[in-house]
Simulated scan of single mutants.
Amino acid sequence: MRTCFALDLKNDPALIAQYDQYHRPDHIWPEIPAGIRAGGILDMQIYRIGTRLFMIVETPDELSVEQAFRKIGDFPRQAEWAVLMGRFQQRLPEAQPGEHWAEMQPVFVLSDTATP
């Protein structure tokens, strides 16, 4: 199952550069991708344009993204990472109460359309 989320970074070029640096494969804490995988997530990608972040999360059909995120939160250093990343991030006005990354709703899905 694919779930997409959005979040903004604080509009500060130095902070944005740091955020990008933390997420480079040679700089990310090894516990973070290990925990994401151990939580059952098959793939996670984060894209950025300006200050807007877009995250795509793939989970097996039998595992909800909420279940995966709860499990990941129990692994070492995940809470520390979340606090650190919170320094760079700001919630979207559209985010629901208690929601950090705002879940996006699909508008168009090619596979839902008829094939000619």
Results as ranks from 00 to 15, higher is better:
Q105W: 08
F108K: 02
I49C: 10
G86K: 14
A38V: 02
P30D: 12
R77G: 00
R24H: 10
L84Y: 10
P93N: 06
K10W: 13
L92W: 06
Y19A: 02
P33M: 08
P106F: 03
I72P: 03
R24Y: 05
P106Q: 08
I16V: 12
D43Q: 08
R52S: 12
R77K: 15
G86V: 15
R87P: 01
L92N: 03
V107R: 00
Q18G: 01
T115E: 14
I32T: 08
V57T: 04
E58S: 06
M85V: 05
R91D: 01
R91T: 05
D20H: 05
K10T: 07
Q67R: 11
W81E: 14
S111H: 13
M104L: 15
M85A: 14
G86C: 14
G40Y: 00
A82K: 13
S64P: 12
A38T: 01
T115V: 13
Q21Y: 14
L9W: 05
G35N: 00
R48E: 04
A68Q: 06
L110V: 14
D20M: 03
G50K: 01
H23K: 07
P30G: 09
R2P: 01
A68N: 09
R91C: 09
L84A: 14
P60H: 00
G50Q: 02
P33S: 12
M1A: 11
F75S: 03
H100P: 00
V107W: 05
L15V: 04
H100Y: 08
L110C: 09
T51P: 12
V65Q: 08
V83Q: 08
E99A: 10
A82W: 14
D20I: 13
N11Y: 08
S111I: 09
R2W: 15
D43T: 04
F88K: 01
F54I: 11
A6S: 12
A6C: 11
Q90Y: 01
P97H: 10
I36M: 08
V109E: 14
I41R: 01
